[in-house]
Simulated assay, not measured.
Amino acid sequence: MLARKEIFPNVIELNFQAGELLGCNVYLVYEGNEWILIDIGFDETVEDYIEVIRNMDFPLANCKTLVATHADVDHIQGLAKAKQLLGTTVTSHPLAVKALEAGDKLQTFAEIELQDIHLEMPPVKIEHQVKEGDILTVGKLELEVWHTPGHTNSQLSFRMGDLLFSGDNIYRDGCVGAIDAHHGSDIVAFIKSLERIRDSDVKWLLPSHGPIFRKDNAQIEQTLDRLKSYLHMADFGTCAIDWPLMDEWEEEILKGQLPQ
């Protein structure tokens, strides 16, 4: 049996446990014999993760549910396979249900033709829907559901004590989940979600990619400043709220101002 390498009490991250990077962060949260997984990653690594879980002596039949933080292929492509192998259920935000149950390749980023990305996206039935303020229970543990949109409209985070499973909201280097109009990203909502995380008293952020890190409000402020600038940049197209240069251009046209 493998020794359990808890990152925090009752929390195991499966890449860290395996000693190799298999994909997105997959968190096993347990109390007693009951456990859940937060995200599962790609289809091709599902059996690797399950083997790690089996070798830690977790009864596979005691997986209460598989939780999708949001409907991106790198987080949830393996849900259908894992659900079948574990005989369990799937939990997501209501706004992710349609894409997951339809296996929508475009919304999940499984199909990006111009970048030659062509991935399968197996549809999966969602048995449980959770929204802001709901509570997920694992044994005697309670995870408070936060709806933190911005990267996607269905992005969920989960608070457990002073820990926040923070999804693709922010990473240790201050980067955030991809902002893309076709993805349904919303920069205004992203800013509000990050402000909520900044203003909370959680101490540790457990992101969906990269290392776990202590919450640093100064770093979050820098990220917020950057995102606020995105609101006024043509670089972000319809995700921006305006483009001040066009107002300047209109004024110059009205004045008949020549290039300077």
Rank of each mutant, 00 (worst) to 15 (best):
V26I: 10
Y27C: 08
L28W: 04
L28K: 05
V29S: 01
V29R: 05
E31H: 15
E31A: 12
E31K: 14
E31Q: 13
G32C: 07
G32E: 03
G32N: 02
N33Q: 14
N33H: 09
E34S: 15
W35K: 00
W35N: 08
I36S: 02
I36R: 00
L37F: 07
L37Q: 12
I38H: 04
I38P: 01
I38D: 03
I38Q: 03
I38W: 06
D39G: 04
D39W: 01
D39F: 04
D39H: 10
I40G: 00
G41N: 11
G41E: 09
F42M: 11
T45S: 12
T45V: 12
T45Q: 15
D48Q: 12
I50A: 02
I50F: 07
E51G: 05
E51L: 14
E51D: 11
E51Y: 03
V52I: 05
R54K: 14
R54P: 03
N55Q: 15
N55H: 09
M56I: 00
M56Y: 00
M56H: 01
D57L: 12
F58M: 07
P59S: 08
P59L: 05
P59C: 09
L60C: 01
L60G: 02
A61D: 15
N62Y: 12
N62T: 14
C63R: 09
C63A: 07
K64G: 09
K64F: 09
T65R: 04
T65M: 06
T65N: 06
L66M: 12
V67Q: 00
V67S: 01
A68Y: 02
A68R: 01
A68C: 06
A68D: 01
T69R: 11
T69H: 13
T69K: 11
T69Y: 03
T69I: 08
H70K: 10
D72M: 15
V73M: 07
V73N: 11
D74F: 13
D74N: 13
H75A: 09
I76H: 00
I76R: 00
Q77G: 06
Q77N: 04
G78L: 06
G78W: 03
G78S: 02
L79H: 06
L79R: 03
A80M: 11
K81M: 02
K83E: 02
